[in-house]
Design a protein around this nucleic acid. Structure first.
Lengths: 338, 338
DNA sequence: GAAACTCGGGTAATCGATTACCCAATCGAT
DNA sequence: ATCGATTGGGTAATCGATTACCCGAGTTTC
């Protein structure tokens, strides 16, 4: 079916070695041969077989990326940023979704490794259950974790400083006058979920405000709606709700307003991520912005440095987040208003 | 670096042929050899090299998918549906985004073909500019278009019946009492954009209502906001706006309400797609639902049947859409209420 | 003028898994 | 006991691109 380099060599009347050299330019050939090979290749519509090249070179020019789900805009934003970052390096991205399941995730990693990707970027879905598969993969190819990480620190990571981000959010609502606060987040299956809760608790405790029991569900709009309903049902609203991501925050604002509460007059709401959902919300959401472009750039850079199974101590690169004050919280001097 | 089947064979004390046969089970071996090979493979942590297998078998067990952008929730929904559909068939998906650029799209197709994918699913970004790359790809591997298609009908397609969908939307707002209508859509670069506009115009003309000049921009929330602003600036609002997708509709509702118009009392708004944005909107959006699961299933099924370059006439499978009435339009007897 | 180099081309090995082909051993039938 | 068939194992070809290695012709150097 396909045209091979042998066909090109035959058509040009030279050996395969010359054809290969003429096409790759990795060794000199006479101008005449270069010309004949180029013409033959063009005429036959020759396209090198990347599979054969990969087998011979022991490198595929692809890196694999595994994220929990592409339905979540935060992950698609990261994926796009990584793609942009890889754009001109000649490496392609092989994208997989683990669907928030450690089993699926392990299977995906297996097939990516079988396809001999040159490196992996992963946001492990579960801080504990993802450990064996991720460590195993890291032993075989360069691997960088992004956003989420596995416990124990066996692999490099780049992400946002979650605790600092939550501190910004909590301090902001307190500066706006909040005396009672609550956290609406996700069950503690990921590092992000845990760090955001602990960042919240630590800052709130230090500030001495009243802290209601956290509402932990999923990183989804639906859970935000449900969390809002529970707050309304409880009879007494806190002055502020700090959310673990924007989807939760958007759902929460929706259900609070639906229940008759005014945002931000009765309750201030702050989200986390700032990836599009935030400006779409009504009113626009105050949130903590993740530096997605920097994270992607850093992840790609790190991946280039890492050697598989290198016993070098794992790095953790935490980038500082930034507070973006919009209209679901009362503005104060601090923070950026947009 | 990697453990090969030669290593396994040596460790088990058999030939590579026996090792391969024991592992694949494609020819009988004695139980004793099967046992020794299985043990050796497990001990060495043998993992077959998919690149070598692909070269030898001339098939990679992957299909490529190219969509305009993964930022658009409609495309991520289709991608997820295709992934689910492929789940248990042992084929993996290689996902690429063309970023709405025919050049990028052509490059992506080239690299997918170089990697010898067994098939392609594509939503071509431009009805004209995408033609050569798509036809060329279709000549080399089985290819199915999804949602969008290129003009001229050189390749199979599966999608929603866009014109029928728009007819549903227009008839619905007219049944709700609208006497003047306008279409907010995208510039006519894709088949969807064109068919939705023509479906709108045909139905509106037949019904004899007043039709304002269409607002054509992009399939984005931002364009929806802008379109709403233009309607407000024009001084006189139509009774209903029918949009080419939900993102436009959501943005439009936002800016209409921001400008003081009531939805649906002053203006009815209907979207298209129904992929999550719709329920998130405030108020929840009336829209036309695309049968994404069916489209994905049909695309995968079709891909299995198509042979590359087969001169069989191209098929177009248009699945009927369904109207979902929520709260941005006045309910009438017809349609499904949710 | 011969030894040492350079230049550029061709042959064949290589990557790893699969399998066509060959061969020896065993079995059943006559 | 002999012949054909069956069973199962091993050797080496194969997929396509790259490149180590070799070789001959032409140049340079003393």
């Amino acid at each position: 079916m396909g045209v091979t380099i042998h066909d090109v060599a035959r058509a040009a009347g030279v050996s395969v070695a010359s054809a290969s050299r003429a096409l790759s330019g990795r060794r000199k050939v006479t101008p005449e041969i270069a010309e004949r090979v180029a013409r033959a290749a063009a005429e036959l519509g020759y396209q090198p077989n990347a599979v054969a090249k990969a087998l011979r070179d022991q490198t595929t020019g692809t890196i694999g990326m595994v994220v929990p789900g592409i339905g979540n805009p935060f992950f698609t934003t990261i994926v796009e940023a990584v793609e942009r970052e890889l754009q001109n390096s000649g490496t392609d991205l092989l994208l997989c979704a683990s669907q928030y399941s450690p089993q699926v995730e392990a299977r995906r990693l297996e097939t990516l490794l079988a396809r001999r990707v040159d490196g992996l970027i992963i946001s492990p879905c579960d801080i504990e259950a993802s450990v064996p598969a991720v460590l195993d993969a890291a032993r075989r190819v360069p691997l960088v974790q992004v956003d989420r990480y596995i416990e124990g620190g066996g692999a490099d990571w780049v992400g946002v400083d979650d605790e600092a981000g939550l501190a910004l959010a909590v301090e902001h609502v307190i500066a706006g006058g909040a005396r009672s606060v609550v956290f609406a987040g996700s069950r503690l299956e990921s590092s992000s979920a845990r760090l955001r809760l602990s960042g919240f608790e630590r800052t709130a405790a230090r500030a001495g405000v009243e802290v209601l029991p956290p509402l932990l569900g999923e990183f989804t709009l639906e859970w935000g709606v449900e969390a809002g309903r529970r707050l309304l049902d409880a009879g007494r609203l806190p002055d502020a709700v700090v959310c673990a991501n924007d989807e939760i925050a958007v759902g929460l604002v929706r259900s609070l307003r639906f229940g008759g509460a005014r945002v931000p007059e009765d309750v201030a709401v702050v989200g986390f991520d700032d990836v599009g959902h935030a400006t779409m919300c009504d009113p626009p959401l105050s949130t903590v912005r993740q530096p997605v472009e920097e994270m992607a750039a850093e992840a790609v850079r790190l991946l280039g440095q890492v050697k598989a199974g290198d016993p070098r101590p794992a790095q953790r690169i935490a980038i500082a987040p930034r507070l973006v004050v919009r209209q679901t919280s009362r503005p104060v001097a601090a923070g950026v208003a947009e």
